[in-house]
Structures are given as C-alpha cells and as structure tokens.
Simulated scan of single mutants.
Amino acid sequence: MTPLPKATPLPKAELHLHIEGTLEPELAFVLAERNGIDLPYATPEQLRSAYAFSDLQSFLDLYYRLTAVLRTEQDFADLAEAYLVRAAGQGVRHAEIFFDPQAHTSRGVDIGTVVRGLAQALDHSEERHGVSTRLILSFLRDLPAEDAMRTLDEARPYLDRISAVGLDSAEVGHPPAKFAEVYAAARAAGLRLVAHAGEEGPPGYIAEALDVLGVERIDHGIRCLEDEDLVARLVAEQIPLTVCPFSNVRLRCVDRLEDHPLPAMLAAGLLVTVSSDDPSYFGGYVEDNYQGLRTALGLTDEQLRQLARNSILASFVDEPRRERLLAELAAHVAPPHRPEA
C-alpha cells in the first residue's frame, strides 16, 4: 500500500517563545566548548535527563544556569538560527520572540551583544526561512522594578529592533502592579505590551495586567476559568491568551495533557493561541503541541485550524502580512485521511 502523504503543518504564528528556552543540549555543549565553560553534565543526554521539573522555580534554576554558555553575538545568532530552522519546519510563518536581557546583563553580557546577535538571525529570517519575526524584551518579575526600569533605559538605543515588552519568571508573589511605572515608560516609548499572568498566579493577576499595566495580550492565562466575570470580559474584549500546553504539564500547572483546560477555553469563546514556551525543556516545539492536543484531547482539524487562525489574528504583524498569512492558512489543504485496511 502506498503510504499516506505526511501532513504539512498548518501555517501559524508562535507568540509565546523564549529564545533562551530553545537552547538544545547539543548546542549548549557546542557553545560551552567555544567559550571555555565547564557544564556540570558529561553529555548532552545527561543534561537532557535533568529536564524533569517539579514546578516553575525548579525549571528556572536550570534555565538560568545554562544561560552561562551564551556570551557573544555569535552565540545568540546561532541560538536564534537554530530555532528558526525548527520553527519553519513546524509551520511557523511568524514568531514573536521573548528574550531576557537581565539574565545576561547580570553576568556581564551587554544588552547590545544580545540584541545584535539575535538580529543577525532575525533580520534574515523571512528571506531564509519564510518566518517574519518580532522581538519582545521581557522583564524578570522576581527582580526589583527599578532593575526593570534600568533595563528599559539600557535598551533604548535598540528600540528600533524591539517591538514590545513582556513580564516573565516566577509569578507567585510578584503581581503585575509592581511594574506599573516601567510599563508606562514602555508605552510612552511606543512599545506594545504583554505579560505572563494566570499560570501559577491567581486570576486576579490577569485583571491586574490588563487594568494596571494596560497589556494587549496575556501570556498563559489558563487560570482565567476560575473567574466567570473575567472570562466574560476576556471574551467580550477578545484579549488573546498565549497558552503553552506542554509547558503547563511539565511545570505541574496541569497534571496531564488530557486534563488541559484548552477545550473549555475554546468552548467559552476565548481567543486562545498555542505556543511552545521553552520547547527544548518542555518536550516539543509548537507543531508538537498542536499534535499532542489532537492526540490527548481529540481536537479536530477545524479546532486546530482555529488555533492557527487565532495566532495570526493575535500577532503584532502589519496588516498586509496578516492578510497574506490568513490567505495561506485558508489555502492550506490537509492530505486526505485513509482508514486502515
């Protein structure tokens, strides 16, 4: 029997992707050798086996430890290029990429080194890979707000390459309101605004991110379902939620993929998108998340297509690019399903 054609991934945007979280163990070892850094693991396989997390903090501990291998512009360029190659193969046509400058400046790597290095790959990503990109500077919420403001000031010479600011790292105990002043400054600088909220933190953090920070998009947001009034607001205002299913399971916010609230979120009319968050650490890139949802939750082709459409609608692309991406999605035809004989 002639094998079925391999399904071509749906064209999609990825809106919740931390570039440091795409550092695969093999590349980590290459960069460590390049920069004369000793990793506390003998092989890439041994490092990968350490990717077992009990909660967000246990992940962050390893995540920040491995950033030590990123030192030069070339390191950041190689990191971004490796992601773009994988993303293109997973149907990504547009990527909005977080980076954590404080994780680098705190160890003596200048923010210009980070931005220029990433730009070496991102500036050519559409030509080389068919992937347009935006760069989002993300503040570490477990550091003082004054540190975030200093980071924004350090980034000002590079704002022509940065589209938005975000807020990530340990959520519990670090409410969005802590960063009201720096978000106001970012808005005044012409930057778009997003924030992680409602993953480990309570639903109230989502409302606070909207009302105090003025964000346009919520990263994660899965705990919104605990507040009916908040859900009604998110639906009415069509606030996008960038949900990361594999991440939610690996960080123990959801017990199993089969228990993920995404179907309930779709049924409620929420503008849900799917991304991979930190794919090297969480077991898969964005199309892997799509297919995992199909298998674990029985999502239909039409539901997956809606997620892809939502991702394009929720992105920060210009309107001509948005229309081209929507047209590409509309024209996408999945190979016919042939039942087993």
Rank of each mutant, 00 (worst) to 15 (best):
E302P: 04
L47C: 02
L122A: 06
V109H: 03
A341E: 09
L143N: 11
E171W: 09
S125E: 05
S163K: 11
D229T: 13
P245R: 00
R34Q: 13
G201Y: 07
L297Q: 05
A52K: 12
V274E: 00
G166W: 07
L293E: 00
A68I: 15
V249F: 02
R48G: 10
L10W: 07
L262Q: 08
Y285W: 03
P202T: 05
Q57N: 08
V235H: 10
D78M: 14
T2Q: 15
R309L: 08
L79G: 02
G198A: 14
S247D: 07
A232N: 11
G198M: 08
Q120G: 05
T67W: 03
A77N: 15
G221N: 02
T67G: 03
R309P: 09
V109E: 13
Y64E: 06
P40H: 14
R322H: 02
Q303T: 03
V317Q: 10
A268G: 04
S49L: 06
F316H: 06
E171S: 11
A155W: 03
E81W: 11
S106R: 13
P40K: 09
V114E: 01
E319L: 06
L225F: 04
T67L: 08
R48W: 15
T113M: 14
E127A: 10
E126Y: 10
L4A: 10
G112Y: 08
A327N: 02
V212P: 14
V131C: 05
L122S: 09
S163R: 09
L122I: 07
S315H: 12
